[in-house]
Amino acid sequence: MVISEDTRAAIEREIGKYPQRRGALLPALHLVQQEHGFVSPDSMRELAGIFELLPVEVMEVVHFYNMFHDRPRGRHQVHVCTNLPCSLRGARGLMRQLESHLGIHAGETTADGRISLGHEECLGACAYAPMLRIGETYHENLDAEQAKRLLDGLE
């Protein structure tokens, strides 16, 4: 079993909030990803068992949403919002700068496993664009130098 008892209990609590078990699949995927940092094929199989779905159906959901990852990621998840308002305020240029600073492309992880960089759709912080998210923390009104310093400060 790769999903812990605690996470399973939390998943059952989520399931209780929905008329059908499968309704809680998205919260469950978040819980599993919180526990492991990603959703492995083994956990997809276990989730399929919990939700009475086929493993491929769980995997379809994991692949459909780009906030779920099916393989290990870096220690820090850096997401740059590149949706329209942020892009109008330079988010794409920011992303290019961060890509060359880290030497990776969006969607990749640095060789030392320190940082995974990714695009993010709207994070609801349009007024503070450009912005990025490190883990659960928003960093707003950024220019390239500030953003690079932020990344350099990550362990």
């Binding site: 086929l54 491929v56 159906e57 995997m59 379809e60 692949h63 459909f64 780009n66």
Partner: peptide, 8 residues
């Protein structure tokens, strides 16, 4: 149910 559509 072996097959699925992955990605988007």
């Amino acid at each position: 149910g072996e097959l699925g559509v992955f990605n988007r």
